[in-house]
Design a binder for these strands. Sequence first.
DNA 1: GGCGGATAGTCAGTGAATTGAGTAGTCAGT
DNA 2: ACTGACTACTCAATTCACTGACTATCCGCC
Lengths: 220, 220
Amino acid sequence: MSILSIVPGYEPEDNPGRRKGKGAARMALRHAVLAALLDEELSGYQLAKSFGLGVANFWQAVPQQLYAELPKLEREGLVAGRKVVQEGRPDKRVYRVTDLGLAELERFAAATDKPSVIRDDLMVKVQAADHVDTGILIARLTERAALAQARIELFDKLLRTMRGDATEEEYLRHGARIGPYLTCLRGLAFERGNHAWYERTVAVLRERGGSGGDVSQAVP
Amino acid sequence: MSILSIVPGYEPEDNPGRRKGKGAARMALRHAVLAALLDEELSGYQLAKSFGLGVANFWQAVPQQLYAELPKLEREGLVAGRKVVQEGRPDKRVYRVTDLGLAELERFAAATDKPSVIRDDLMVKVQAADHVDTGILIARLTERAALAQARIELFDKLLRTMRGDATEEEYLRHGARIGPYLTCLRGLAFERGNHAWYERTVAVLRERGGSGGDVSQAVP
DNA sequence: GGCGGATAGTCAGTGAATTGAGTAGTCAGT
DNA sequence: ACTGACTACTCAATTCACTGACTATCCGCC
């Protein structure tokens, strides 16, 4: 049993404030879409492209999901679509959030939500570090470190763009649209945490040497 | 367009190393289960309860998923089940990872995986901070900060339990089972990051005062 | 004058995640 | 004798997330 005993165990998530009625439960993507459309009127295509900054360092979706979600939101009156005839390229349909959509966001914000967790294949791999090849893990971790570095730079650039000339403190105090700025800050810190952990983990695995694998035969 | 232009945009994820054949794509839970069973022989029930420490600060599942997954893994020969007759309580079936399961984990570890992202309702809410009630956001953030604090303490306790008398450096160099220790470290750092961000965000929102909402009428 | 690439979007399908409800035995209280 | 809590698991249903394959127009390139 050992460690197993100090952990609180599975609890049926008895959130009293949540509607646990019929269908509805987390209904997630829709709110991310609403949040993304708050500051700009966008088409599905534009949304898909931009769904990696505004909202999407913490919520990702492929275009098809968005194309499916937008008409659904429109039917419910949460967004309003408008056809834009273009020349030189296909027509498009742009959407903006309606008052009803804003109210829905407000309602959504009021609900207490379950805490977020990291969900990551690489963590599963590291969890098994004592049983799988160390070299492979180091390779994966190194890949990720590079990726994290790239994302750090991207976030940094985004933040500088958003705040313009102002310092961070100034912007947070007086700037417009702090929402995106704040979430971007979280994204940046997250990636910094990732990067640091990747490097540390690589260092630890390296120091232990032995290209690893089965720990039961580790005595030569 | 403004910010939209500096972001790299949607790329079709052209990972050349990934099998993009028929069904398989991420097939995630199975590997988490395998990793969780590496160090202990557990029943579905025990796994469900412990699936919040070993593996599960980065992978979560409800009991039903595990009960569904275990026989599936057994049919494929990746785990071996064994009936344990108990007195005073119902019989149970405990599972351990087979050599084939270990090989599967190894294969899994070799595949490059897509980077993890935070996926969190609360981030969506903060993204909309300029348009929804600030008081509500502060309430949610405060809840989360408390929760993060609790998790920080839990991780801390887990880490101390795992390393016993040794210091962290010693344990990372010479200890057995660093896998769980390393992932736990990531979990701890993540929660610390969360906590810091929650507090900072609350502070920012407080300082801006105005119980928020529509920014277009923000000039009194 | 055909090819690649961008814009703009649709359709069909699978497996994974989540929810809800139920079964069945043991034990501690009141 | 009944309630509730814990162990141990099962079944059914729904909803999400994601993948892959497709249509169509226009532009620039060589």
